[in-house]
Design a protein around this nucleic acid. Structure first.
Lengths: 222, 222
DNA sequence: TTTAATATCCCCGAATTAGGGGATTGCATG
DNA sequence: CATGCAATCCCCTAATTCGGGGATATTAAA
């Protein structure tokens, strides 16, 4: 009997790849794919998955909320989080919400399938770096150095935004359009676009509104 | 540069297998093997490992104790626990002691090597069932107050937004597009636009970003 | 010295949003 | 009953944003 997998992800390409991977492998069946979690209950009820692959960053109901809902309504369904970025808050929140696994999006296809099986069998696959964070939550705030050469790191919560990117994000929050930002910063419209693309990548958002909301809520701008 | 591995295990056969595995694989070097942890400090000092493989069940100083000692004296050395049994107390104790990984002895040789690399690179490999236990430690306690939220006090100035308008504004702040809001609220795209126009009028703004910024900063939405 | 990151600029096509009209229903209130 | 208001729906055009591509120069790090 094939393992039924339902995927929630706002990235169509990711959904496509996963569809090919899962439906193309004996023993796996793609039970449902959904671009958002706004109707997560009916989606799960309808698709009847054994394992759910859940993106975290999604517009509307995000992955963390969705896990809470799913685990409350369907406690026997195991949810594996899949995200492009690992930041402490998300990892911690996802686990508290009831996630049974947490892997990064750069995980190799073969490994993803392994992880699905592991989750199905009651395991909790995690990308190594995620696992390290999880252990960190349990360990004393002693926080021993991981590696001598990795001691220098950016603040985890500012998404590695550059000075210029923060500047543009600040303008955005003030309600400026690309054109106005360009004038304000004395750069071309296209450069603003370029920065915006990078900001979107780093924040993992896909619209001005999401960027603004994230910037304000997480105090990325002053 | 080969990864230097030091192993503590009271099982000679296990030590032999690991020796063959580690020294027989390019990129790995067996820096030291010890049958107990009674002189763990000098053993580590002498063998200068990058990664330590530590059995838990050992006569004399046990693996958990040893990890504590090692992490105190050599915080940069990463220790991976390896044990035949997984019981909650051991897993929990080992992690609190500072272990960076926790695998079972039935782990395949190839996987062991992978785990060593992962630990060396700052990851925390765990056997799936161990990982599940670890997550369990975090999930059991009632979702602690991570976000001590600001007290709920309704602002007097809510710009005379109607219930529906606030609803739509809330969706907007969550990052939804008009189309998604329409779906979410079960109304047509055009109706969303209609509401948006009214919201813009009332808030004296002219773009989604301004609306979102105003909504968050003035707490117009929950 | 090669690589990586940052900041700058450009084009295209598709999707989304903004602003300007308008229309209908239902509901409450004077 | 008429008026106002909330909520629903529609059309058109123009502006803006988004997601792919690129390219170049400078600087910092490996």
């Amino acid at each position: 009997m094939a393992i039924r997998v339902t995927v929630f992800d706002d990235n169509k390409k990711m959904l496509d790849s996963l569809s090919v991977l899962i439906d193309g492998t004996p023993g796996f069946h793609m039970a449902g794919i959904f671009l958002n979690c706004n109707n997560v209950i009916s989606d799960v009820q309808q698709s009847q998955p054994d394992v759910i692959l859940m993106d975290i960053e999604m517009p509307g109901v995000d992955g963390i909320e969705a896990v809470k809902i799913v685990k409350q309504k369907f406690p026997n369904v195991n949810v594996m989080m899949q995200t492009a970025f690992e930041n402490d808050e998300n990892v911690f929140a996802a686990i508290c919400a009831g996630a049974s696994g947490y892997i990064l999006k750069n995980t190799l296809p073969a490994r993803i399938l392994e992880c699905i099986v592991e989750v199905y069998q009651g395991g909790s696959p995690m990308s190594p770096s995620v696992a390290r964070k999880v252990l960190g939550f349990l360990q004393q705030p002693k926080t021993a150095a991981i590696h001598p050469e990795t001691s220098e790191q950016h603040d985890v919560n500012d998404y590695n935004l550059t000075t210029r990117e923060k500047e543009i994000l600040t303008c955005l929050v003030k309600g400026m359009s690309y054109k106005m930002i360009a004038e304000n910063c004395s750069i071309s419209y296209e450069t603003v676009r370029s920065h915006m693309k990078n900001i979107y990548d780093k924040l993992h958002v896909a619209s001005m509104t999401e960027a603004v909301a994230k910037a304000i809520n997480q105090k990325l701008v002053t």
